Amino acid sequence: MRAITMSRSGGPEVLQWARVPDARPERGEVLLRVAATAVNRADLLQRAGHYPPPEGASPILGLECSGTIVELGEGVQGWRVGDDVCALLSGGGYAEFVAVPEAQLMRVPKGVDLYSAASLPEAACTVWSNLGMRARMHRGQTLLIHGGSSGIGTHAIQVARTMNVRVAVTAGSAEKLALCRELGARYVINYKEDDFVAEMAYYTKEFSHPGANIILDIMGAKYLDRNIDALGMDGQIVIIGLQGGRRAEVDLAKLLAKRATVTATNLRGRPVMGESSKEEIIRETMRCVWPMIEAGLVRPVIHDELPITEAAKAHEMLDSGNVAGKLLLRVS
C-alpha cells in the first residue's frame, strides 16, 4: 500500500507519498480502505518532531479518517465487510489502508457523505469529551471558544448553540468572525484588535453571573491568566492545546476567589477501552452529537479538499492560519 511517509522531522517538504508495508488487522481490529483523512494541528507538530505517536501507534500521520471496511480481524462483532464508517485513530490515516480497533469505529451519520465524514471524529470527540462529559455544559451557560473558526471551534459553536448555550468566540479576521456568527456564535471578538477579557465583561455584564461559565482554550500558557479574568464564578477553563506555550504562573488567589477550575485533556493518548477511554468517548459522542448532525443542526465545516499526494500543501495551508474549518485529504 501507499502512504505519506517522513524520513526525518522537518517542514512540509519532508512529506512523501511512497510505498509502505501493508496494514493488517489484529484481533479486535478492522482494516479500512481509506476514503479521506483530515489534517489536524497535531499532524503538524508530529511532522516537526514535537508530538511523537503513543507507544504501539502507527508512525504514519493522521488522527481520523473515513472509509470502507475490507477485512475483519479475529473477534470483531457488530461490523461487516463493506460497511462505510469514520474512525478516531492514534495514527495511520494518511494512507490507503489503516487498521483500526473496532471500539474506535463510528457509523457515518445520515446526511453526511463518506468524504466529509472524515472531518468528524477528532473534532466531535474532542468537543463532546471536554464540553459535554467533563465540563457538563448545559442550557443557559456562556461558553468562550478560543480559535472559533478552527475545526474544533466550528464544531463546538454548533453543538453549544444546539444546546441553547450562549457562545462567544475569538478569531483573527472579519471573515472568520463572520463564519462563527453564521454558525451560531452570539459574541465575536477579534483577538488582534480587542481584549477578550474586557469584551466578555461587557457582553455578560447584565447576566446574574457575569463572565464565561466555560472557556475552551487552545492557547495554554499565553492565555491562562487572562482566561481566569474572563471567567465567571464557579467557571471552568478546559485546555486542549498549547499553541501559546506550556509554562505559566497562576495567581491561585484569583482561582480561589472565583471558585474556578482549570483542567487539561488530550484524546490521542487515552486507552482504547476502559475508564476514560476512547471507546467511552466515542459511545457518548455518537449518542449525544450524532442526532444533532442527523437533524441538520450540526454540519461538517470543510475549508478545502486536496488529494493525499498534496499533503505538504495542506500542511502549509493549515500552518498559514488562513484555514477556517477542516482540511480534507482524499485518498481513494
Rank of each mutant, 00 (worst) to 15 (best):
181 R>M: 04
181 R>A: 09
181 R>L: 06
182 E>C: 10
182 E>W: 06
182 E>D: 14
182 E>K: 14
183 L>D: 07
183 L>I: 03
183 L>S: 04
185 A>V: 15
186 R>P: 00
187 Y>E: 14
188 V>T: 15
188 V>E: 15
189 I>M: 10
189 I>K: 04
190 N>M: 08
191 Y>H: 14
191 Y>P: 05
192 K>C: 00
192 K>G: 01
192 K>V: 01
192 K>L: 07
192 K>Q: 00
194 D>R: 15
195 D>V: 08
195 D>Q: 05
196 F>Y: 06
196 F>K: 07
197 V>W: 02
197 V>Y: 09
198 A>N: 09
198 A>I: 03
198 A>P: 03
200 M>C: 01
202 Y>S: 15
202 Y>G: 14
203 Y>F: 13
204 T>R: 10
205 K>D: 01
205 K>N: 00
205 K>C: 09
206 E>T: 15
206 E>H: 12
208 S>P: 03
208 S>Q: 12
210 P>A: 08
210 P>F: 03
211 G>R: 04
211 G>W: 04
211 G>T: 02
211 G>S: 02
212 A>F: 00
213 N>D: 15
214 I>G: 01
214 I>K: 02
214 I>L: 07
215 I>T: 06
216 L>T: 14
216 L>Y: 04
217 D>C: 03
219 M>S: 11
219 M>R: 11
220 G>H: 09
222 K>T: 13
222 K>Y: 13
222 K>W: 12
222 K>F: 13
223 Y>D: 06
223 Y>H: 12
224 L>A: 07
224 L>P: 01
225 D>Q: 12
226 R>V: 07
228 I>N: 03
228 I>Q: 04
228 I>F: 05
229 D>Q: 12
230 A>Y: 05
230 A>N: 11
233 M>G: 04
233 M>F: 07
233 M>S: 08
233 M>A: 11
234 D>V: 10
234 D>T: 11
235 G>H: 09
236 Q>V: 15
236 Q>G: 00
237 I>M: 12
237 I>R: 14
237 I>E: 08
238 V>N: 01
238 V>C: 00
238 V>P: 00
238 V>A: 03
239 I>K: 10
239 I>L: 04
240 I>Q: 14
241 G>E: 03
241 G>V: 02
